[in-house]
Amino acid sequence: MLQAVLAATEGETSNPLIPAPYDIIWSAVCFVVILFFFWRLVLPRMKKLLDERSAAIEGNIEKADVAQREAEAALEQYTAQLAEARSEAAKIREQARADAQRIGSEINAQAQADAERVKANAQVAIEADRQAALVSLRSEVGSLAIDLASGVVGESLSDDAKATALVDRFLADLEASDTAGKK
Rank of each mutant, 00 (worst) to 15 (best):
L174N: 00
E175G: 01
K182Q: 13
S156T: 15
E175C: 06
F170P: 00
D147I: 04
G151R: 14
E175K: 10
L171Q: 11
S139W: 07
S139C: 03
R169M: 14
E140G: 06
D178Q: 07
G142H: 03
G151S: 14
A149K: 05
A172D: 11
S136I: 09
I146A: 12
D168L: 08
K182P: 10
E175F: 07
D168I: 06
L144V: 03
E140V: 13
S136H: 12
A163R: 11
G154R: 06
S177Q: 15
S150I: 08
A145I: 10
A165F: 05
G154V: 10
A145H: 05
V167L: 03
L144F: 06
V152A: 04
F170D: 07
D159C: 02
E140C: 03
D168W: 00
A161T: 13
L137T: 15
D168R: 02
D160W: 01
S158M: 04
D159P: 02
S158R: 05
E140Q: 13
A161F: 01
L144C: 00
G181F: 01
R169H: 04
L171W: 01
D173R: 08
S177D: 14
K182S: 14
D147V: 06
L166A: 12
L144N: 06
F170H: 00
T179F: 02
A180D: 11
G151T: 15
A163Q: 09
S139L: 12
L166P: 00
V167W: 00
E140D: 12
L144W: 01
G154C: 04
R169I: 07
I146M: 08
L137E: 14
D160M: 01
V141H: 05
E140S: 14
D173F: 00
A176T: 12
A176I: 12
G142T: 15
G181T: 10
A165Y: 04
L148Q: 06
D147R: 06
K162A: 14
L171I: 15
D159L: 02
A145M: 08
S158A: 10
S158Y: 01
S150R: 04
F170M: 11
E140R: 13
I146Y: 02
L174T: 05
A149W: 04
A172G: 03
D159I: 09
A145D: 02
D168K: 02
K182W: 05
V153G: 03
D173P: 00
L171Y: 04
T179Q: 12
T179N: 13
D178H: 03
S156L: 08
S177W: 02
S158E: 10
K162V: 15
L171T: 14
S136P: 01
K183S: 07
L166Q: 04
E155C: 04
K183L: 09
F170Q: 02
D160I: 05
A180W: 05
D173H: 02
A149N: 11
V141N: 07
E140T: 15
S143N: 14
S177V: 15
V152R: 05
K162N: 09
A145N: 04
D147W: 00
T164H: 03
D160T: 06
L171C: 13
K183M: 04
D173E: 12
T179S: 09
G181D: 07
G151I: 11
D159G: 04
T179L: 11
D173L: 10
L174I: 04
S150C: 12
E175A: 11
S136F: 02
V153M: 06
